[in-house]
Amino acid sequence: MNFREIVNIGGAFESVIDWLVDNMSWFFKGISTAISALLDGTTAALNFPPWFVMAIALTALAWWVAGRGVAIFTALGFFIIWYMGLWTLTMSTLGLVIASVIIALLIGIPVGIWASKKNVVWNVVRPVLDFMQTLPAFVYLIPAVLFFRLGPVPGVVATLIFSLPPAVRLTNLGIRQVPKEIKEAARSFGSTSRQILFKAELPVALATIMAGVNQTIMLALSMVVIAGMIGAGGLGNEVLRGITQLRIDLGFEGGIAIVILAIFLDRVTQALGNIAQKKR
């Protein structure tokens, strides 16, 4: 019997997971139901209008937020996606991204605020974030599958865990960077902690927080593709099919659609961040 068998790190992790699967299934079932509902909602909303209506709407959004150049790119890009016959898959990928990002921000921003207020919290949260970001993305897939089976729900779970860290980090950073005198000024006029947060800190930190949102979205998009391996659906499936069947054409088309979606999301969210910055 060697040492490796006595202290078995991987084995210990496995037994923890086993225990969770055996005893906490009600918990995971609840989460699963909630995520499914959110996901169905977003995907249905994206697929409800005919493709050209949706494409026009997204182009209008790009124009309004990011200007003419991005709008032209958006119109052209979404036309190509439709032309390649990937419209529905792209929308379900976008749905996965939106659902994951909503949950990631709902968790990440409050945690970031909390961490910015209490050094203890930040000292605990930081190594967890490091762990989440450096662990290879594929590794998330295994427990996600064990807890949530196959399908889009574990895809969302793996994605939100992978994309959560920048939202926490940049919210924390943004609030910590608010000049001391602004916080003092808010306090000196008799603000409660809540008033300081909502009337001074969050608005001043908004640009930094938006940079975090942008990164979260980009990470989510990259993870959603990987999540195709566990049946999350969308463009990930297409790329995976290209790899497994050695179909270069399928893989390339799927890849192009992902790139177009990525550039659209990046430019639009960055422009939102710039608007927040300019308001200062």
């Binding site: 005198e181 602004i182 000024a185 000196s188 006029f189 009337k199 001043v204 908004l206």
Partner: peptide, 21 residues
């Protein structure tokens, strides 16, 4: 204390402490 700060004493800061937004 909040009441004191709201109604009785106000402060002006060296680097202004204005809200940029």
């Amino acid at each position: 204390l909040r009441e004191l700060r709201r109604y009785k004493m106000s402060m002006v800061f060296q680097h202004f402490g204005l809200l940029p937004h």
